[in-house]
Nucleic acid binder design. Structure first.
Ligand SMILES: [Mn+2]
Ligand SMILES: [Mn+2]
Ligand SMILES: [Zn+2]
Ligand SMILES: [Zn+2]
Lengths: 137, 137
DNA sequence: AGATTAATCGTAATCATTATCATTTAAAGA
DNA sequence: TCTTTAAATGATAATGATTACGATTAATCT
């Protein structure tokens, strides 16, 4: 997923193209990390000083619904990142200092499904937290 | 971990025994599920109508620090449960309806450590969400 | 250009959590 | 048992993130 693909996807879904929305997408493109909603808000405010909370939050959730972004909860705050679709289903190491992520190409679900017969599995979360090589003292 | 063990552990650490604290522990004992902080607050208020938010939250975090409770973020709210130490390190299926959990005796970390050389791993989260057998239509 | 309707703005409200400080009380010692 | 004292609590305010909503603006269509 890149910026143009995301913009086209939104257009094809019938959403209007706005400069605020484009700026949000632009921030996420080429960033391989989760970003807190309020961080995005601050960033957008540099270009659009009067931007509404509502605009930012509504768009983040909309973009997540449309699978252009993916989200996770970190420290009680919603974080978002560009949706990973270059490789298959995978998980992430997340650096607790800089926020950068590294893909982990292993999903534990197949190993445990047999132990959950009778349970209807909707989704799962597997995240590894720590310091990336650049953030270690 | 049971109620008496938890109470004794707190006493041995030098913490005072208060009825509020005992009530909190009592709620968690014998519950095999994560409970939201505010749910605990409401429950405590039945016995202690004037209980302070602070008392509840402070105790939950203290008990988690002392590893009498364990915690996780669900829907942007902190949830707590009695610490599982009857079996080894494990993970949980969590029912999104009733909150009950089922232990999953598999930890994916050993499978992926080799792919994260150079990364300092601090902790990890593996949770499976869905409906338990009792909560399916 | 004008109409239509989504999107945004401005602002207030909500919800969970955290902070502060005066008061109370559990626990240890005389 | 009485006194001491430090921990714990209560009352309340503050914070921080998120959500809500009516009025206004602006993107797209004809
Ligand atoms: Mn990825
Ligand atoms: Mn368990
Ligand atoms: Zn997976
Ligand atoms: Zn594990």
């Amino acid at each position: 997923m890149n910026l143009d693909t995301a913009i086209n996807k939104m257009k094809s879904k019938g959403y209007k193209h706005t400069k605020q929305r484009e700026r949000i997408l632009e921030i996420f493109s080429r960033q391989d990390q989760y970003i807190a909603a309020k961080t995005i808000l601050k960033e957008i405010q540099k270009d659009f000083p009067g931007v509404s909370f509502d605009t930012v939050y509504r768009n983040l959730y909309l973009l997540a619904d449309e699978e252009i972004l993916e989200s996770t909860d970190l420290d009680g705050e919603k974080h978002f990142r560009f949706h990973c679709d270059t490789h298959g289903h995978h998980h992430h190491f997340i650096c607790t200092d800089c926020g950068k992520t590294k893909a982990v190409e292993f999903c534990p679900m197949e190993k445990i499904e047999s132990s959950l017969s009778g349970y209807a599995i909707d989704n799962h979360k597997f995240e590894i937290y720590g310091k990336c090589p650049q953030c270690q003292t």
